[in-house]
């Protein structure tokens, strides 16, 4: 009966992706105004630039997490995929350096290709386990998380890898027309992802497979191959993030980000409005900005205060819970 009503009155309140983008935009604007009003240094060029340098890596991993969540999966190994991809790329650049003397730019291209191939391979293993073997994605990617971290520790002996050609650091330190290169990469990848998810048959099948895999199967969609492609894509997004981290910090370590990044990518993905069968690149990008603003804002506000770095975690936690509660009420509104 109730369903009939809604069918007849499509103008009634419906919580959809557009509402989410609007909600996130409002939250972002409020936060920017709030921090800008009480902290002079917040809205300066250098502060904005530093935020734009910092957020792409987590945003890219957030996109990788989001696409996995769109098929009702998850990619817990994404941060370790990023680290392992960067490590293998870093090792190859160091080993190959003698052969590329004078051709450093070529070596950068090689770094990119090696990292992306590694990320794709890591993703393929996830896809094999979650898609073809049928392991629950949360267990499969938790297992590969440990595996990839283990490999990273073994090949580096647990040490941080440094000493890359200076050309590599361009990506993480230079700007194009005033915009930091990592941010340019983030935007380009975001636009590509948006296009892939909204306008291609692959994106369509991802959404259908995520909404109802059984119906998808009966409609001729090969869920396993979709899962494989999604996890490979997720791995590649991780690898791009890994390259940015490597270039920005001029180093690679097996433990980079392992303390908080997985939770952050989950937070970004959920905050961005991702759910099985549904997802929105714009939402994920806005969510990334919100987290970065919170993190930078509180960092400035509480500079010198004891325990200030914990306040960042605290604010993310509060935000996550607030979003869960808002979602709950919006969904209730929808079902009445």
């Amino acid at each position: 009966m109730a369903e009939q009503k809604r069918g007849k009155f499509p103008g009634g309140f419906r919580f959809n992706i557009e509402d989410r983008v609007l909600l996130l935009s409002v939250v972002l604007i409020i936060l920017v105004i709030f921090f800008g009003a009480i902290e002079d240094r917040f809205l300066t060029g250098s502060s904005i630039r530093s935020m734009a340098f910092q957020c792409p890596e987590i945003g890219l991993m957030g996109l990788g997490m989001a696409i996995a969540m769109m098929i009702d999966g998850i990619n817990l190994s994404i941060n370790d995929t990023a680290n392992l991809s960067a490590l293998i790329a870093g090792l190859s650049i160091v080993k190959l350096a003698p052969f590329f003397a004078g051709h450093e730019f070529l070596s950068i291209v090689i770094v990119f290709l090696v990292a992306i191939a590694t990320g794709a391979a890591c993703g393929a293993l996830n896809g094999l386990l979650a898609g073809y073997i049928g392991a629950p994605p949360i267990l499969a990617t938790l297992a590969t998380l440990t595996l990839y971290r283990g490999i990273s520790v073994v090949i580096t002996g647990g040490k941080t890898l440094t000493g890359f050609p200076k050309e590599l650091s361009i990506i993480g330190h230079q700007v194009v027309m005033g915009i930091p290169i990592p941010f340019v990469i983030f935007l380009i990848v975001g636009i590509l992802m948006y296009f892939v998810l909204e306008y291609t048959t692959f994106g369509f099948k991802v959404r259908m497979s995520g909404t109802n895999p059984t119906a998808a199967k009966f409609s001729g969609i090969d869920n396993r191959s979709i899962a494989m492609k999604v996890y490979i894509l997720s791995g590649i997004l991780g690898a791009i993030a890994g390259i940015i981290v490597m270039s920005r910090t001029n180093s690679v370590a097996y433990e980079y980000g392992t303390r908080t990044y997985i939770l952050l990518t989950l937070l970004i993905s959920v905050l961005g409005g991702t759910s099985p069968g549904f997802g929105n690149v714009v939402g994920v990008i806005l969510a990334t900005f919100i987290l970065q603003v919170l993190s930078t804002g509180f960092h400035m506000l509480l500079l010198g205060v004891r325990g200030s770095s914990f306040f960042k975690d605290f604010s993310w936690g509060v935000l996550f819970i607030a979003i869960l509660i808002i979602d709950h009420f919006m969904r209730r509104e929808k079902s009445i």
Partner: peptide, 13 residues
């Protein structure tokens, strides 16, 4: 419901 439809997706999809 289980095998035929994608309930949350649009009718056009």
């Amino acid at each position: 419901i289980k095998e035929g439809l994608f309930l949350e997706q649009s009718i056009s999809n």
